[in-house]
């Protein structure tokens, strides 16, 4: 059973890969065709629920001028990922990263030292293997 989160992701993937705005019925058909877990037999009412949630989070915009309503993604996948990475790397201008990274900022000199260290340690490993 797919969770709501999985369905949201599946719907966004379809919208991101589509050039045109899609209706809920189009979306359901593409989800069925996509063969993803839990998306194969999803009902159109579920798709509409997911879409309104995504609209609430401002990931999806709805064109109400036509019947049926047409949906498209507000921002492309690549732009979202880039924004996320800016946040992660602390380069986003308006926000401090609210998360702890495995490796924080590294100065070029420090990176160079680490590369030398890596070279030395792999040589050491090789020589101790020979002994």
């Amino acid at each position: 059973m797919a969770t709501l989160g999985d369905l949201e992701r599946a719907v966004m993937d379809v919208l991101w890969s589509s050039d045109d705005a899609l209706s809920a019925n189009d979306l359901r058909d593409r989800l069925h065709a996509s063969d993803r877990d839990g998306a194969r037999d999803v009902a159109v009412t579920t798709v509409l629920t997911v879409l309104s949630r995504l609209e609430g989070k401002n990931f999806v915009s709805r064109d109400r001028s036509m019947r049926p309503h047409l949906y498209r993604s507000v921002t492309s996948r690549a732009e979202h990922t880039a924004g996320l990475m800016h946040e992660v790397l602390g380069t986003a201008p308006d926000r401090e990263a609210a998360l702890a990274r495995f490796i924080g900022s590294v100065s070029p000199a420090e990176a160079e030292t680490l590369r030398e260290l890596l070279g030395a340690s792999s040589r050491n490993a090789a020589s101790s293997n020979r002994q």
Partner: peptide, 28 residues
Amino acid sequence: VASEGTDRPDGSTLEHLHSRDTSSGVVG
């Protein structure tokens, strides 16, 4: 991870690592 993170010729997303090393020395 630390050395790969800075060793990018295009430097696109990681440019800041060179300019902003407030926590310099942590990884070392």
